[in-house]
Amino acid sequence: MIEILSNLLHNFYYLIAIILFVIGFHTMLSHSNLIKKIMGMNIMDTAIFLFFVSIGYVEGGRAPIIELGQDHVYVNPIPSALILTGIVVAVSVTAFALSLIVKIYQHYGTVDAEEIMRIRSREV
């Protein structure tokens, strides 16, 4: 038990990433407003970015801007470079989802998922 707790405390960046992920997932599942669902998805994205970037940290490391002729420890540049792609994909998905929501609002007059389901069931 003590070992588990000390491991958790030592890895608290990962722990916080997981808490953020669960918060975002809860927002997506429990709200029926579509805009709030998008917000929850963005929180989940941020949790994954935090998790991935914190994997690359090296104890006592500096940002990977090389100072020529000096011997420093640098953090791992690869997770940062990969996460840049992830951020761009998150922005793209958010933009497309927002445009879909604009169209849904123009068609149904609401952004509430349950309301839309009710309207659709009435139409059938």
């Binding site: 030592h10 890895n11 997981i18 690359g56 997770p79």
Partner: peptide, 18 residues
């Protein structure tokens, strides 16, 4: 997920597989 974090290699160690 939290039990996965417990098994993760220590944060910031230079010997991490990454």
């Amino acid at each position: 997920l939290i039990f996965t974090v417990v098994e993760m290699p220590p944060f910031g160690s230079p010997d991490n597989p990454s």
